[in-house]
Design a protein around this nucleic acid. Structure first.
Length: 462
RNA sequence: UGCCCAGUAGCUCAGCGGUAGAGCAGGUGACUGUUAAUCACUUGGUCGCUGGUUCGAUCCCAGCCUGGGCAGCCA
């Protein structure tokens, strides 16, 4: 049987080809006097392959009824195109119609809004924009692994079902097999989780960090890359209930090393997509974000800005810029503050580090000033926080004090404390939102448009 | 969850206190190595839902639903 050639391979062909097979979906059809032009797309690349279907074909009447969305298999010759705009085209010897698409097919050859396409999530990857998004997503995921594998990091699969809530990381989805209508109850009337599947309350993970720490304190350099779940009622363009997160964790590493890795990582990903997804990025630059390529290149060209939280607060206070919310030491930076720093003041990715301990989670390492912890946030123009991380508290007594201050029961963190009891070591890591990185790299401004089937509050239809 | 904006044909949108229009898509025909082809004709709407005001509501008001933007939570 004749092997299928992808549209991508066909368009990149160095020479004409006899007896050649392509399969895909019709994007549009144009009739000429004695033949019909079919624009064939198979998702292997943005471009379509032009097929010449001659009127002499036995099923020409059916071919002339082909509409946008139909699937076909085309056998023929790959020949130089007589027309402008493409190097190669297919002179069809046979066009087999596999599946028709009637007039109700919602995708048209005109452009659609992303909002409309979200309502047909099962069909939107057939659009130019989403085809590009998901090819880039695939490449970006590959680049993530490549980056860490090249540097000797081990890929760790941390659990998706977890009994720990990684304090401070948000609301959790409960995982249970109990009968919701009639759950077993204890004598005090509370639901008896001891009778649940895992004999304890369990949740979908909000972070693999704590588990990654255990593996970093064994394999030295590790990373996770997997789905993450947050049950927050967040309705913004940059939050999803299910998203993918990358969490490197390094033993014998401090905050400085952590910031260095984060910066290197971001640049690596940009460079990789820039070279391997050039055609897709051009579509984004044309239709989504005119300044995309300049901005990506700008980021590659210079070091990230680094400012301590204290410096950032001073800088914002003295900026003379009117903010809706006041800038005050000891409170979290508001989105508008972060945006000012990265978009207006520095105009480049900015790493803010050493935050007051009061506003950060228990596991972050306390600085010698006793006021700040080694937190770091990487802010990026247009999106805001893309990475959040820290050096971890490796000193058992300091960690215990911190947990007490956060009203956490040490009994719930026994194994985590063990890591400090036995061969503790300075270590650090961060979490990168994969979709946020994808948004940055594509210019697509809504996280729902960079996830194949987005889960957000009130929405899991597909 | 809060604040703001929107909902009119399959899609994008215009319009108006007297029950609606364009472009594209679909259909028919013409033309053509075309490129989101072109030209002519044409089908298509309980104007988001429920109430209220009014002689009369798609238009004004209220509530609800859906979508979007921003904020909080964070990645």
């Amino acid at each position: 049987m004749l092997q299928t050639t992808s549209v991508k391979e066909a368009l990149a062909s160095a020479s004409p080809r006899e007896d050649f097979l392509v399969r895909g979906w019709v994007r549009t059809r144009r009739d000429a006097k004695t033949f019909s032009f079919l624009e064939l797309n198979d998702g292997s690349c943005l471009k379509n392959l032009q097929v010449i279907a001659d009127a002499a074909l036995p099923n020409y009447a059916e071919i002339q009824r082909l509409t946008t969305g139909a699937s076909v298999s085309v056998r023929g010759q790959l020949v130089p195109s007589q027309g402008q705009g493409q190097k190669w085209e297919v002179k069809a010897a046979a066009v087999e119609i596999i599946g028709t698409a009637d007039a109700t097919y919602p995708l048209q050859k005109k452009g659609h809004t992303p909002e409309f396409l979200r309502e047909i999530a099962h069909l939107r990857p057939r659009s130019n924009l989403f085809g590009c998004v998901f090819r880039v997503r695939s490449r970006l995921a590959f680049a993530v692994h490549q980056f860490f594998q090249e540097r000797g990091f081990a890929y760790v699969h941390t659990p998706i079902i977890t009994g720990s809530d990684c304090e401070g990381a948000g609301e959790l989805f409960r995982v249970t097999t109990l009968d919701l209508k009639n759950p077993p109850r204890r004598e005090d009337g509370e639901i008896d989780s001891a009778k649940d599947f895992f004999a304890r309350p369990t949740y979908l993970t909000v972070s693999g960090q704590l588990e990654a720490e255990a593996f970093a304190c064994a394999l030295s350099k590790v990373y996770t890359f997997g789905p993450t779940f947050r049950a927050e009622n967040s309705n913004t363009s940059r939050h999803a209930s299910e998203f993918w997160m990358i969490e490197p964790e390094m033993a014998f590493c401090d905050l400085r090393g952590n910031m260095g890795l984060a910066e290197e990582f971001v640049k690596y990903l940009i460079r990789d997509v820039r070279t391997h997804c050039a055609e897709d990025l051009e579509l984004f630059a044309k239709f989504v974000d005119k300044g995309l390529l300049e901005r990506l290149d700008f980021v590659l060209d210079r070091p990230f800005q680094r400012v301590s939280y204290t410096e950032a607060v001073e800088l914002l206070t003295q900026s003379g810029h009117k903010f809706e919310y006041p800038v005050e030491y000891g409170t979290n930076l508001q989105s508008e503050h972060e945006r000012y720093l990265t978009e207006q003041h520095f105009k480049c990715p900015t790493t803010v580090y050493n935050y007051p301990k009061e506003i950060k989670p228990f596991y972050m390492r306390l600085n010698d000033d006793d006021r700040t912890v080694t937190a770091m946030d990487v802010l990026v123009p247009g999106i805001g926080e893309i990475i959040g991380g820290s050096q971890r508290e490796e000193r058992l007594d300091v960690l215990q004090t911190s947990m007490a201050r956060h009203h956490l029961d040490p009994k719930d963190y026994g194994w985590y404390l063990d890591l400090r009891r036995y061969g503790t070591v300075p270590h650090a890591g961060f979490g990168m939102g994969f979709e946020r990185m994808l948004m940055f790299v594509t210019g697509v401004s809504n996280i729902r448009d960079v996830i194949p089937f987005a889960r957000t509050p009130g929405n899991a239809a597909f």
